[in-house]
Design a protein around this nucleic acid. Structure first.
Lengths: 211, 211
DNA sequence: GTCTATAACGCGATAGAC
DNA sequence: GTCTATCGCGTTATAGAC
């Protein structure tokens, strides 16, 4: 067996895996994240349900692959948004990119930020890119502190928790109440600049209360 | 058939309905909200699964009853928390009560604040008490505006959305990351006073930016 | 080896007859 | 209230096709 044929097979296999994930996302969009059905996926692909087990050992493994895919895409979108942007605007751009990505990838967002699929817990491997994003945000905060744009506590655990909770809260409300809206015209997404302003105000270097 | 016997039957029926709901909540606590199984409920009650259909027309109807129950309990907890409290502390007490109730009733909170059960949408009847709570909060905000403790915009749609998003965000993070914590020692619940402070700061009467 | 199909098991929600 | 029956699900075992 030639090396080329191995490659071709590997490529074809990866392609099938991607198709399975694509179809899964599409189905979850219409049926709900927790309502993913392997039979439905197989039908869409013209396969029999057991054939899927050549590619994933279980339904939860598909969720895990989707989680990882989502976390990687999310991380890359974040990084792209803050690249080539003046340091003092990185937080604002990053958070806007967060909102934009979430509204464009609602299914993946639900998987990443809520934990609502019974029995599913992301593997450490799938979770890793999500941790990277957290580290990125914290380093942006740290930078803002060191350059004097924010007070000490902003880069603390509480500061990070506050920032992520406020933005995740807007997202939560947006997805629960107005899921069909776009990032630009969502009632809650519109408030993203406001909470960022509140955050900067709370951790303003010269005044405000310690946390 | 005597009136008494009708009463007794009605009472007994209501009792069974309550038992079904209680068992459902208990099962969702261990298995996940979306993993509720009628068969499991029936087993716990020593019934056959089809017998449940004497009390609820479908599984989604059970979710709806739980939603309504949760919304009513939530509303009552809110109202009890703000009763007999000085007007200027009602918002703080109400929000603390929100956090406390949610952590003590996580299953119902998920049902109320996220929409993660495939195919479930609360009926208007079940949703009504939730709307009452919103109206209560808005009236508290309005009161704060009229008494000069908050600026005009605080009681607007955006103000209400901001306040609920920030608190719901903390809850979301708490439930997703540290569900086993209590209200008192949860990393995110601890920040509830902070976001309230940020809110008051943002809508302070004398200064701040318009929203 | 790698992929796919068929058959079968156990479980779930639910409809209907009793 | 039950029992029976139908249907769809995730999953496993097994056997044939590339």
């Amino acid at each position: 067996m030639s090396t080329a044929s191995v490659d071709r097979r590997t490529r074809r296999r990866q392609q099938t895996i991607d198709e399975i994930l694509d179809v899964s996302i599409a189905l979850m969009e219409t049926e709900g994240v927790a309502a993913l059905s392997l039979s439905a996926v197989a039908r869409q692909l013209g396969m029999q349900p057991p054939s899927l087990y050549q590619y994933f050992p279980s339904k939860l493994a598909i969720y895990d692959a989707l989680f990882q895919r989502g976390a990687e895409q999310f991380r890359d979108a974040q990084r792209k948004a803050v690249a080539d942007v003046p340091v003092e605007q990185q937080l604002a751009h990053g958070i806007a990119a967060f909102g934009r990505w979430c509204m464009a990838n609602q299914v993946l967002s639900q998987l990443l930020f809520w934990r609502t699929v019974p029995g599913f817990e992301p593997s450490p491997e799938a979770f890793a890119p999500a941790l990277e994003v957290m580290a990125d945000v914290q380093s942006h905060l740290q930078e803002a502190v060191e350059s004097g744009r924010l007070r000490e506590g902003a880069a603390s655990e509480d500061g990070l928790a506050l920032l992520t909770s406020m933005t995740a809260g807007l997202l939560s409300q947006q997805l629960a109440n107005e899921p069909q809206a776009s990032f630009e015209d969502g009632r809650y997404m519109k408030l993203i600049p406001v909470v960022l302003e509140m955050f900067f105000h709370h951790y303003a270097p010269t005044r405000g209360t310690a946390t």
